[in-house]
Design a protein around this nucleic acid. Structure first.
Length: 183
DNA sequence: GGCCCCCCTG
DNA sequence: CAGGGGGGCC
């Protein structure tokens, strides 16, 4: 196939700099994955492979990367449910009253988790996704749908359709390494 | 079987 | 976050 996996350094097609290939996901890869979450909550394994050009993928590290996003989603949804219940407890009546922007408490909670060092300017679309998710949880709980053991499934389905395109620059190994400096 | 997702746990 | 288990889908 002309795919020399034994070679450590090859030329990056875009930046023309040498890329060190690895099969081990680093803390930098993790940091980058978290930033990707702002755009996509449900990236497919093929998309993930494309966005980590410096990784020599195999079954194990692919599963690991996919698992990361699963963990990201868990934290995300737990926060959503918590805040939705909080709004109900505070007497909010309509889901339409839920408005999320970059100053919202829920936003700060998520930002500190996925974007600790503020290395990325969060896309407005993410605030919209948070707001939509919050409203779905709010309505479901308000309608007592949480009595159903699998009541969250319907919400997951809706949110899964709200993924956005991940910017191309995420594919740049050079960009990823710049995240290391910005600590 | 293999892949993916969620749940629960530590 | 990683491990392990369960269930769904092709």
């Amino acid at each position: 196939m002309g795919n020399d996996n034994g070679v450590d350094d090859q030329l990056d097609a875009v930046t023309s700099v040498s890329v060190h290939y690895t099969s081990t996901l680093s803390s930098l890869h993790l940091r980058k994955a978290k930033l990707m979450f702002f755009f996509s909550r449900y990236p497919s394994s093929t998309i993930l492979r494309n966005y980590f050009p410096d990784v020599k993928f195999n079954k194990a590290n692919t599963a690991q990367l996919v698992k990361w996003f699963s963990n990201f989603r868990e934290f995300f949804y737990i926060q959503m449910e918590k805040f939705a219940r909080q709004h109900l407890a505070e007497g909010m009546r309509s889901a339409d009253d839920i408005l999320v922007d970059c100053d919202s408490e829920i936003f700060r909670a998520l930002n500190s988790h996925y974007n600790r060092n503020n290395q990325l300017e969060i896309p407005a679309s993410f605030c919209f996704v948070i707001q939509a998710t919050l409203r779905e949880f709010f309505k479901a709980i308000q309608d007592n749908k949480d009595m159903d053991p699998s009541w969250k499934k319907a919400i997951y389905k809706i949110i899964a359709r709200m993924d956005d395109q991940i910017p191309e620059y995420f594919k740049s190994v050079q960009w990823m390494e710049s995240l290391e400096t910005n600590i």
